[in-house]
Simulated assay, not measured.
Amino acid sequence: MEISYYPDTDSLFIKLRPGAEATGEEVAPGIVFHYTPEGEVTAIEMDSRASHLADVTKLKAEGMPTVSISHSQAG
């Protein structure tokens, strides 16, 4: 899983699994689910107001098997 935040557009993109997104559907204002051709969700996108929809300054992960963690800061 990959989580990317883009401060210049205040957008958040969460890639859940590998695979090409075939379609995207806005499920709530500013929130888009991306699907494979088979209908599986591969990504979640928060457009232009991510910091108003979620606290982008904190990330908490519990109970996840951790193989590797990387951190990069834009700028």
Rank of each mutant, 00 (worst) to 15 (best):
A22V: 13
M46K: 02
A50I: 00
E62K: 11
S4N: 15
A54H: 09
V32F: 06
T9R: 11
T57I: 04
F13T: 04
E38D: 15
E38V: 06
F33D: 05
K58R: 15
T36M: 09
V67Y: 11
G19E: 06
G19H: 04
D8L: 13
L59W: 12
D10Y: 02
I14P: 01
S4D: 14
P65T: 09
A28K: 07
I31G: 00
V67L: 12
E26W: 01
H71F: 14
T66N: 07
G63H: 05
A43C: 09
A61L: 15
D10K: 02
A20D: 14
Q73L: 14
S11H: 01
D8C: 05
S72M: 09
I44P: 02
G63F: 02
M46Y: 07
E40C: 01
T23G: 09
P18Y: 12
G24I: 03
D10C: 01
E2K: 15
Y6W: 09
S72N: 12
P7Y: 05
Y5W: 06
R17Y: 07
S70C: 06
A74W: 04
A20W: 09
H52Y: 10
E62P: 01
R49P: 00
A74P: 01
G75D: 10
T36P: 01
T66D: 04
S48W: 11
Y6R: 07
L16F: 07
D10S: 03
E38Y: 07
G30Q: 02
P7K: 05
L53R: 06
A74V: 11
G63C: 03
D55K: 08
V27D: 04
Q73Y: 13
H52E: 15
R17P: 00
T23M: 11
M1F: 10
S68T: 11
G24H: 04
L53K: 05
I44M: 08
Q73G: 10
S68D: 11
F33Q: 06
T42F: 07
E26S: 00
S68W: 01
Y35L: 07
T42I: 14
A61R: 05
L53C: 08
R17K: 14
S70R: 10
P7A: 07
M64L: 14
P37Q: 14
Y5F: 12
V27L: 05
S68A: 10
V41F: 06
L16H: 03
E62Y: 07
Y5R: 04
A54S: 12
R17N: 07
E40T: 08
G39L: 06
L59T: 13
G24Y: 05
P7T: 04
S51D: 05
V67K: 11
E40Q: 13
G63R: 03
Y5M: 06
Y35A: 02
A28Q: 10
L16R: 03
E2A: 12
M1A: 14
H52K: 15
E2C: 06
A28P: 02
T36H: 08
P29S: 07
I3F: 07
Q73P: 06
R17F: 09
R17A: 11
H71V: 15
Y35C: 04
P65C: 03
